[in-house]
């Protein structure tokens, strides 16, 4: 593992640096932020200064502190959602692949149906009916996103399932659980790990977009997408402020994508 890290290309190292920086900021947010998440500390849209490293937002809160707390809220939300999405997606996908028959048919057709619906529109409609709260948000996005995870894990598991070592396990008389855990899962890990990165990016951007549309995390909670929305008006005055949270979102997704790219390259190379 360490050797692998040593051989990683520059792009992947930059990616890892970005992700680690973000995670550290998220974990130690209260220690890093000079002001409270919602405390009003100065004038509206002040510029850079020693007092406000990144200036202030549309109602005079310290933007740097908001960014730091925003990292925590936004990343944690996206991470939990992605985990949940993977839990649903992989379990159902593996079961469909190994069991086959009507279970596979039922699951796959249902998933096809959900996927025929554009995700953002589906989410908007659900949120319009249920209202936007953190649990609704997590659950809705996790369910919608798990369809893609299901597709991939089913396909990967199917590829592994036709291999003779799985047949050998079946002929030995092994049960479903053993086959999934011992034979399929270890071999499905590389594509699934890469997919986790991609799904995280997608979920992260998706939540940011919802927040930007005013339907994600609700104020006064700090989150990057919402901060872009709150300060959007500044841009027409030539004030860069909305670009900072938007840039932070872009920064983290680029970082994750750089790692995923390296990982995909690595796992495809190992196949040869």
């Amino acid at each position: 593992m360490l050797k692998l890290l040593q051989q990683s290309p520059l792009s992947a190292r930059i990616g890892m640096g970005i992700v680690i920086l973000n995670v550290l900021v998220a974990i130690f947010a209260p220690l890093i932020a000079p002001y409270g998440e919602t405390s009003i500390a100065g004038d509206v849209w002040e510029g850079f200064s020693a007092q406000f490293y990144l200036g202030t937002d549309h109602i005079g809160r310290d933007l740097f502190s908001r960014m730091v707390f925003g990292a925590r809220n936004t990343i944690a939300l996206a991470f939990i959602t992605t985990l949940l999405s993977f839990l649903f997606g992989t379990v159902l996908g593996f079961i469909a692949a190994v069991k086959g028959g009507w279970i596979d048919q039922l699951l796959s057709r249902t998933i096809d149906m959900i996927m025929a619906f554009p995700t953002l529109i589906f989410a908007l409609m659900i949120l319009s009916v249920l209202g936007s709260s953190i649990p609704t948000l997590i659950f809705t996005i996790a369910v919608l996103d798990s369809t893609r995870v299901y597709r991939l894990s089913r396909a990967v598991a199917m590829d592994i399932e036709v291999m003779e070592f799985v047949e050998a396990a079946r002929l030995r008389g092994e049960g479903l659980w053993w086959i999934i855990r011992q034979e399929i899962l270890p071999n499905a890990m590389p594509p699934l790990i890469a997919e986790f990165g991609l799904r995280f990016c997608f979920v992260f951007l998706f939540i940011a977009s919802l927040s930007f549309l005013g339907l994600g995390l609700q104020p006064p909670l700090a989150d990057w997408g919402g901060m872009v929305r709150e300060n959007a008006g500044a841009i027409t005055f030539g004030i860069y402020i909305p670009l900072i949270p938007a840039g932070a979102i872009a920064f983290l997704t680029v970082g994750v994508n750089l790692i995923v790219d390296w990982f995909l390259h690595l796992s495809s190379g190992l196949h040869e």
Binding site: F212, G225, V228, A232, I235, P242, A246, V254, V256
Partner: peptide, 18 residues
């Protein structure tokens, strides 16, 4: 293109506006 895929639409939009 990898960067453009990673950016949220509104980031690109605001940069273009800016």
């Amino acid at each position: 293109t990898l960067s453009f895929i990673s950016f949220p639409e509104f980031f690109i939009a605001y940069i273009l506006i800016f």
